[in-house]
Amino acid sequence: MRIGAIAGITFKEAKRDRILYLLFFFAALGIGASRVLAILTVGDRIKIIKDVGLASIAIFGVLMAILIGTNLVYKEIDKKTIYTLLAKPLHRAEFILGKFCGLVLTLFVMTAAMTVIFLDIVFAHTGAIEAGLLVAVAYIFLELVLITAVAILFSSFSTPILSSLFALAFYLIGHLSWGLELIIRKMAPGPGRTLVQVLYRVLPDLENFNFRTEVVHGLPIPPGIYLTSLAYGVCYTAFILVLAVLIFRRRDFI
């Protein structure tokens, strides 16, 4: 109930944020521009539309999660609205979870809106909607949920600018960490290799949520991968949220 109330107010606040609509406008522009790119490209035009469309949803979704998420908790502390909330019978964990759920709901609505535009364009070209595209979007959304948790984690102890940089770094590292696996394969056994192995285990691997290439090119995906990626996303998000709650619980609001 209390988490729902906080989530509701967060959703109300997020949907008033102009950045959200600006990013949505550019996302829609990006999805629409895929048609132009397709015309200019030699080869399978539909693949270009799908590829650029999915990439637009992913990139602008991440920007929404980071730019709004990193402000959410900070704004409550900075504007001192948190005093009114924490004086109520509210656990600090409920506050963090409420903020998280509110932003996830906002991102769900925005992702759904972007997907509708994207599927409209695909339908206009192919006359059909592939279920695979919805699966790719669902995993993009799962990645956004994780990025939201990360943004809230940094927002619980840092300023919006620093939090945005940290969250962006997390996103970039998460998409490049798969390269460490290649390095491990080529390294000789020793302390260096162990260190890289530890890094590989600790750093996030956001490529787990990337089914875009397979969906766009119609490549087969083993069914077990879906489940593993889902479990990875849920567990990682839960871990980040627990971390955020632990940090937030120790904070003094001066």
């Binding site: 107010i9 109300k12 606040e13 008033r16 504007k79 001192k80 609205t81 005093y83 009114t84 004086a87």
Partner: peptide, 12 residues
């Protein structure tokens, strides 16, 4: 609790 200089969600 009524805080000093109360700050609330001003859009509500």
């Amino acid at each position: 609790f009524l805080p000093e200089n109360p700050y609330f969600y001003d859009y509500l």
